[in-house]
Nucleic acid binder design. Structure first.
Lengths: 118, 118
DNA sequence: TAAGGAGTGCAATGCCATTGCAAAGTTTAG
DNA sequence: CTAAACTTTGCAATGGCATTGCACTCCTTA
């Protein structure tokens, strides 16, 4: 199962929800896939993205992703097809924070219409 | 109820969850507060913030907030006290998107430790 | 070949958002 | 003043998604 999920994630360039994977691997149970993704997270293979769609999305980490501020790319949620893209070529600078605020993690999410849904 | 909630929101400079308001106004029902906030949203008084904490947060809109890209300030979630701040003095530019991608809404969330929890 | 560990499925739980329905309160027209 | 119409509220139920306990199966290894 882990191999199948990992392979599928590698073939995609976007973030997938647990439910999408459930539908895809219909012979496997929800909880199996959940635990698969959990294992991946614990081993820094995937990171979670909360795109506000109600379902958490999972995407493969980059080689240099440490799942923190360093992994500072934008996620784009298409409100039409509900797909979430990792816009790794569109970096965004970490802004200066007010006094006393310390950042550990950042998540820049943009909602709109993706190129295939236009 | 609407007046009470609105007044309380105006006194805060941060985003509150439904649950926080429930606890605060314990004589009012969950659903009443929920519908109050829903009404506020429909009339562009508050906007919703998904800070990944599991609970949606609600914050008063600025006068010029049209609850879209224009309302492009950063939200800061303190992972210690779980409070969400609107960093209106820390604007962030909307980046250029790849070809064919059109943005309607943006949400920049930073997690870390706030100034009072440091 | 038996024992231990890993992976899986099922069912249950929990949390939060949301809604149907009826009761209570408020406004308005006569 | 009063009844009808509308609004607001509370309670209980529903639904979606994440998560977990438990038992069963499968695989590895001594």
């Amino acid at each position: 199962m882990r191999l199948l999920v990992l392979q599928y994630l590698m073939e995609q360039n976007r973030a997938l929800s647990l439910n999408e994977l459930e539908v895809l691997f219909e012979n496997a149970d929800k909880s199996t896939i959940f635990r698969t993704l959990k294992t991946f997270q614990e081993n820094y293979l995937v990171h979670r993205i909360n795109d506000g769609s109600g379902a958490i999305k999972y995407a493969l980490c980059d080689d240099d992703c440490i799942c923190s501020l360093e992994d500072n790319h934008i996620h784009f949620l298409c409100t039409k097809c509900e797909k979430t893209y990792c816009l790794k070529d569109t970096p965004i600078a970490t802004p200066n924070l007010p006094n006393g605020f310390r950042a550990n993690f950042a998540n820049y999410l943009i909602e709109g219409i993706c190129s295939t849904c236009t």
